[in-house]
Write a protein that binds this DNA or RNA. Sequence first.
DNA 1: AGAGGGAAAGGACATATGTCCTTTCCGGAA
DNA 2: TTCCGGAAAGGACATATGTCCTTTCCCTCT
Lengths: 231, 231
Amino acid sequence: MKENKGIDSFQYMKDYELERIFPVEFRKKMRVYSFHKGDLLFTTGQMLNELYFLVEGKIKIYTLTPEGKSLINRFKRPLGVIGDVEYVKGSPVINSVEAVSDGVMLAATFTDLKVLEANHPPFTRFLLETVAHKFYTESQATSLHMLYPVEVRLASYLLSISSDGEGTLFHQEMRTENLTELAEWVGTSYRHLNRVLKRMNAGDIIERLNGSIKIKDLEKLRHLANGNIYE
Amino acid sequence: MKENKGIDSFQYMKDYELERIFPVEFRKKMRVYSFHKGDLLFTTGQMLNELYFLVEGKIKIYTLTPEGKSLINRFKRPLGVIGDVEYVKGSPVINSVEAVSDGVMLAATFTDLKVLEANHPPFTRFLLETVAHKFYTESQATSLHMLYPVEVRLASYLLSISSDGEGTLFHQEMRTENLTELAEWVGTSYRHLNRVLKRMNAGDIIERLNGSIKIKDLEKLRHLANGNIYE
DNA sequence: AGAGGGAAAGGACATATGTCCTTTCCGGAA
DNA sequence: TTCCGGAAAGGACATATGTCCTTTCCCTCT
């Protein structure tokens, strides 16, 4: 990730309604960074001195254990805030962050932000809402993970990414970029994920074609997920 | 839980440094409730209209599944804040709350708080710090739960409650109020907890006497916990 | 078309954890 | 002291999940 002065940060701030929380003078102090797919953006334990706003692209937040196991905590798309908890607590980075696609982030230093907070309450309020939402999501996820088997979590996941707006609800097709990643997301091993997928396949709940997963029976899936849904 | 006008809320506010976040005029609007051991204080799904401050006693926050399984998310002692996320998000209560002992809570209505926020930034800041810390803790717990077996979580728990301040570190004795509760806390079944305890016992890591657990080998325990520790 | 590499699928076996019961133990009520 | 009930301990068996490998499949490059 590196600074990119050629990008118009003001447009992004307008698009994502950051103007309300950042006064004009403040906006000028912010920096713009761009990154590429696969970049390791932040690492557990590292100290931050800037708060970041994801305004373009997709990133994933994950935990690495000393033994090398990895668990994806969540994905983020614009508008995502990175480093909020670290800013408030003054603690080192909790989870590692990796770019899933190319993207852009805006940044403001902690020092500037502290000054801003002193004169501009809306920013603190914004942070509060952000963190509250993160907590809420995390809390739901914890319960889901602790109380139900992989099958249920997988069903929830499939439901949450199947855009169920229209009537063309059925036979949704969603190519999983990568089964390994999916496994890390639901918090299980690749092997086991495969096993559960096979079971769902046998139960005519989904259909697997060339590595893609097609939902065949939304009702059964809902029944499996048992009311649980991500986010 | 019921209102108790006989209790001096001002003393509590002084003790827990709430005076900084609540101006004098505001303090008068706050109510005091007392509750008894075993009281069900809040239930999942319920709507709140007050924010609570635990100033006396101990409570537990837990999740109940439709199937009746239960998972303890955390315990709280003074000063604990209850309803912060619900206040910010305007959402129904996430987890149920039960009194573990008799206790006292102060309360302020959401309506009053919104007015307060508009004129008194320190309160918003306080909430932000509270929620950030909750998120941090929750996040650690999630990783621990997802990535390690019960044995590790149990070791972490035992370490976290063994006050390791003095030199009398060894042979700490801590009577688990209740093994069932401990099981819900580490997120496993009573049976399995028992099994793991037995294994630790056989490994001379702990010693079980009349339902109490005595730590025999702190080093082994640390090794098991593998650097993970609650809170 | 042929070769090679990485992801997908799955077999075999071990471990972790859950469920259902039965047996012990211990402290309080009679 | 005796009896009883709830909590502690643990046996037996089923299920969930992990680990280590091997086999298939595609896709791409040559």
